[in-house]
Design a protein around this nucleic acid. Structure first.
Lengths: 329, 329
DNA sequence: GTGAAAGCGCTAACAT
DNA sequence: ATGTTAGCGCTTTCAC
């Protein structure tokens, strides 16, 4: 028999279906005698409860859905943290791949909600605020990675400003004094500019404007040849804000004769793909921790807490030291 | 109403439940009039069919489960290929994270099977052959990434020997003549040794033994200082077999004065984490293609095909050229 | 074409 | 402590 049912087990153990159901759910009010008989029969038959049937009857599914982009390298650690927290409360974690594009994510979200999970976790969602709010009307929901737009939603995020400060103080502690700050964004948020300036001040250093690129193009007389790029200002270390900026900074440095970390130390605020492989120091909230916190928020809500205001958790950043940082030459 | 049911829709449209069910499943034998009324009512109510109830009644869930290790960088592309093939047949793809450790994978597999998916895909499974076979007894199953032990199971894999040959011929085409071959494995499979030898012969070159390390330690008189490692044999290019070997080779080259690709070109057979970020040329089967093929195998089986012998698909390797390879100096 | 009736496998009162 | 009875929301014969 490929899929024995509760009834099969009951028949084999010589008891009623309800009794088997109680045993399977570990009810304390079943005699030791019968319990063992039931367990024995179930084992012999290779019985496994049908989650669908159970959910339908119970009105809860016992599972939490995660919508995430598998291409995000932090996704695995995020999932680990969630799985860990879920396991502690014996909740099953199911993943559907959002895949980045909003249209695909929307479809995936629907697919997830159709399963009637007890709750939903959205990792770095790209969906519209209204889609997310509609979903939240359907079942408990928490957002991780970005701040949810609606104030009623629970969310777990990192703290970019704290990360910038930490990056600067890390470099300062290493002995750097000329610490530049890079951002691809044409106008970085004031919070980040302030964080950089404040951290430099705290370290007793003077800040400079946040730049999009610290390397001036080769002078015409150089003939534009590779290797002729030079720093537009002297600096021995740089903080690149954001994954894209980090990648760009590395590429830019690669075009110069500048060695990392020999000539310049580099810290990326964020967690770009391949950071570990490339050996670049990063400052970011540990994704595992983000996941754990989000799952806990969600489980609280599933457990019955229904605060009017969404709760927000901020996970402090951590420095992951890699070979791209060293004391100045 | 948070979750309107079929009945709610029926009431609103003034028809019977069965009629709504037919419409929802796109049956052709419903009058245009009533169909539109039903669709309208469903839309107004925001009706979404309950997958659980539907599966329970229909005896199929319309979903396939994927068990994969999210930490595997190829996982995302694998999933994309599967999702693409699944979407064409309107099957939902659900992921549960195996997480590498066999115990955890075992639990995840059970969790997946408890959902009664129409089929299961195992990506690089570490589970025991007996666990896998037991699972295959439960529902259609296909293995991707490794060859399934049992001959009765469907499987999709790459072709390591072909990849080695392709790597060698790629380097030969670039103009390399001294092409070494590295493997961390103490005794690489004969198929790989032969593939390397054959490819060298085809290129009109002489092969050499596969080595675990091509860099001799510094001679004692050097005082063991970094940068003193030297090639134990002259070579201008190397093929590293396997992710771990690739990482090791890069690290080893990093300890020397040897530049990549200036002094030596490197090709990794496999797809180590961060290969793209690091800029190392790889030769491997495109993971997306592996996923697509596996899903198609599975859907055939779900569709009713039940060949006695498991079917095997081999996806040919592809060269992904990156900066670690260049013509010899 | 349309509706009524019988489950799918399980849980959760409610009896006993 | 154990069995009985209704459903959960849907699909699927089978009559009309």
């Amino acid at each position: 028999m490929s899929h024995p049912t509760l009834e099969d087990v009951a028949a084999r153990a010589g008891v009623s279906r309800a009794l088997v159901s109680l045993v399977m759910r570990g009810s304390p009010k079943v005699g030791k005698e019968r319990r063992e008989a039931v367990l024995e029969a179930a084992r012999e038959l290779g019985y496994r409860p049908n989650v669908m049937a159970r959910s339908l009857a119970a009105g809860r599914t016992g599972m939490v859905g995660l919508l995430a982009d598998l291409h995000d390298p932090a996704c695995a650690a995020l999932h680990d943290g969630m799985a860990e927290a879920a396991a502690r409360r014996s909740v099953r974690l199911l993943l559907v791949g959002g895949g980045g594009r909003p249209a695909r994510e929307r479809a995936a979200l629907h697919q997830l909600l159709d399963l009637r999970p007890d709750g939903v976790l959205l990792a770095n969602p790209r969906s519209s605020a209204s889609d997310i709010e509609r979903a939240a009307g359907t079942c408990p929901l928490a957002v991780v990675g970005r701040s949810p737009r609606s104030a009623r939603l629970d969310g777990v995020t990192g703290d970019d400003a704290a990360a910038v400060e930490l990056a600067v103080s890390h470099l300062a502690a290493l002995g750097h004094r000329d610490i530049a700050c890079l951002s691809l964004s044409p106008r970085p948020p004031a919070s980040l500019r302030n964080a950089y300036a404040a951290a430099m001040r705290d370290a007793g250093l003077g800040d400079r404007p946040i730049a999009r690129d610290l390397l001036a193009p080769p002078a015409p007389e150089d003939g534009g040849r590779a290797g002729a790029w030079r720093p537009s200002e002297p600096f021995s270390a740089a903080v690149a804000i954001g994954d894209a900026t980090g990648a760009g900074a590395l590429a830019a440095l690669g075009r110069t004769g500048l060695r990392v970390p020999g000539d310049v130390s580099l810290v990326v605020v964020g967690d770009p793909p391949g950071a570990a492989a490339i050996g670049v120091t990063t400052v970011a909230p540990p994704p595992r921790e983000l996941g754990r916190a989000a799952m806990e928020l969600l489980l609280d809500r599933i457990g019955g807490e229904r605060p009017e205001e969404g709760r927000r958790i901020t996970v402090p950043p951590l420095v992951v030291g890699r070979p791209s940082t060293a004391p100045p030459a």
